[in-house]
Structure formats: C-alpha cells, structure tokens
C-alpha cells in the first residue's frame, strides 16, 4: 500500500516510452490472425437470407438447446467445481498435486477423446452405464442430459482452475480470524472465503459457460446428434456445412453474436475490466 505512489509514477514513465516495433508488429499480426476469420464470416454472410434462416424452427431449437445446456452445465460445474477448488487450495492431503494435475487433464485432451471416454464409462455398455441400464432401463447417451454431462466434463476444469487461483490469492488471515471468533470451517467458507473469491468464481463460471456453449467433440461423440434433443449449435453448424455452407455461416454468426452479447453483458456487470 505504501509503495503505491512511486509505483504509479514508474508505470506512467514506462507508458510514455515509444512502443517498440519488436513487440508491436507481432502483436498486430496476432490480433489480425484472431480477428480476420470473423471478418471472413461477416463477408460471406448471406444477409438477405438471414431472417428466414434465423426463424427456422431448427435454428431456434438448436440455439435454445445450446443456451439451456450451457447454463445447466455451468450450474453443475459450480456445484461440484467450487468445493473441488476449495479442497485443492485450502486443504493438505497426500496426492493433492496429483489431484490438481488430474483436474486439468480435460483441458489438454481433445474433446473427442473425452467423449469416447465418457461413452466407455457412462454409455449403455460402459463400465457404470451398463449397470444403470440393467437396473433402470435408462441409458444416458442420446439424451439432453448427456449433452450437459459432456459439457461439464470439458468446462468444469476452467472453473476449478479459476476458483482455485482466486482462493490462493485471497488472504487466509480473514478465515483464521473467523475461526478464532468461533466460526466453523463451513461457516467461514460460506461467509468469508466465498465472498472473497467471488470475482474468481464469476470469471470461472463465465469461462465455463463459454466453453460449454462451444462444445462440439465430446457432445457429438457421447450424446449423438438429434435435432431438438442433442443437436446444439456447434453440431448444427458442422452438419449444415455438409449441405449448405450459407446456413452454416448464419448459424456461426448467431452463435458468435449470442456468446459475445452474453460475455460482454457479464463483463460489464460483474467482472471489472481495467
């Protein structure tokens, strides 16, 4: 705190200097690389046919399914992901580092592989799914629930990592103070830890939601593809590409606009941007 004033002065001095070409040129190339594909999408959008395509029942069905499943997947991720992040950040147990590494595995494997793995465990002939099917006659694949399961698998790690980082950054002395005042660990978590980590939780939830909305590989592998039940927007885009690329472009544009709108709204509302 005391070092605030001189720190600010140094920062201003650094900012006044000339932007070095060695940084500016690659930065602009990187920006162009990220933005150009969207420009291509906009250029190839058949604007005249936009409304009829948008109002088709299939497109609306896929969009609502995507929004609904991504939101459900985020809720499930919060329910299990926040406690998991707390466990990794705030407790000591043998193999804690291994657990942390395991949580990040879904981040690095191709989602299709995740879908195959889910199928082998939760599918009708899978390790656990087999028993579920024998007892109840219910099998998860090809249901909307399977879409949510696939999305949770790929999205929850983002939330866990984000919340864990926030918990590590939060000052533990407040929790200790709460404990000395007689709060149980559960009360301290609810009343002290969670409010302190709130920005991290929100950021993690937004990341998880965005990731779930874009989920393709695990969904098509595990949940299959059927309009109205399991066909989310990314699946609809992929299949439209087989027959009419114009429709695929429109679907992509819708997905892009919706996700941008939601992310921008959430950013302004909760996640402070400097």
């Amino acid at each position: 705190m005391a070092a605030g004033a001189p720190g600010r002065r140094t920062a201003a001095a650094v900012r006044r200097g000339r932007t070095p070409w060695a940084l500016l040129v690659p930065a602009l190339i990187g920006l162009a690389f990220l933005v150009l594909p969207f420009a291509g999408l906009l250029i190839r959008t058949p604007w005249g046919d936009l409304l009829p395509l948008l109002s088709s029942a299939e497109v609306r069905g896929a969009l609502w399914l995507s929004l609904g499943t991504a939101t459900a997947a985020t809720a499930v991720s919060l329910l299990f992901g926040v406690p998991l992040a707390w466990l990794i950040a705030r407790t000591e147990f043998p193999g804690r580092r291994a657990v942390r590494a395991l949580v990040t595995v879904p981040l690095v494997i191709p989602p299709v592989v995740g879908g195959v793995a889910l199928l082998l465990v939760l599918g009708r002939s899978g390790l656990l799914g087999r028993h579920l099917y024998e007892w109840t006659g219910f099998s998860l694949p090809f249901t909307t629930a399977a879409v949510v399961v696939a999305q949770v698998f790929v999205a929850m790690p983002f939330l866990v990592i984000s919340v864990e980082g926030a918990l590590r950054g939060a000052d533990r002395r407040y929790e200790e103070a709460a404990a000395t005042l007689g709060a149980s660990r559960w009360t301290a978590f609810r009343r002290v830890t969670l409010p302190m980590a709130a920005p991290g939780v929100v950021a993690g939830a937004v990341l998880a939601w965005a990731r779930a909305l874009g989920e393709f590989g695990a969904t098509i592998t595990f949940a299959g593809n059927f309009p109205g039940t399991t066909q989310t927007m990314p699946l609809a885009v992929y299949l439209a590409m087989q027959e009419s690329p114009e429709q695929a472009v429109v679907l992509s544009l819708v997905l892009l606009l919706v996700s941008l709108a939601v992310l921008v709204a959430l950013r302004d509302r909760w996640v402070g941007t400097p």
Partner: peptide, 19 residues
C-alpha cells in the same frame, strides 16, 4: 432414430460399442 450421425462410420461405431 436416437441419433443422426455425421457419417456412416459413426453410425456403425454406435453399433460396435453397443450403444
């Protein structure tokens, strides 16, 4: 149908896996 697969091999795989 429970699922409309993206290609014929994917449909075949569903049978192979017993799904």
């Amino acid at each position: 149908a429970a699922s409309q697969e993206e290609d014929v091999k994917a449909a075949l795989t569903r049978v192979r896996l017993g799904e």
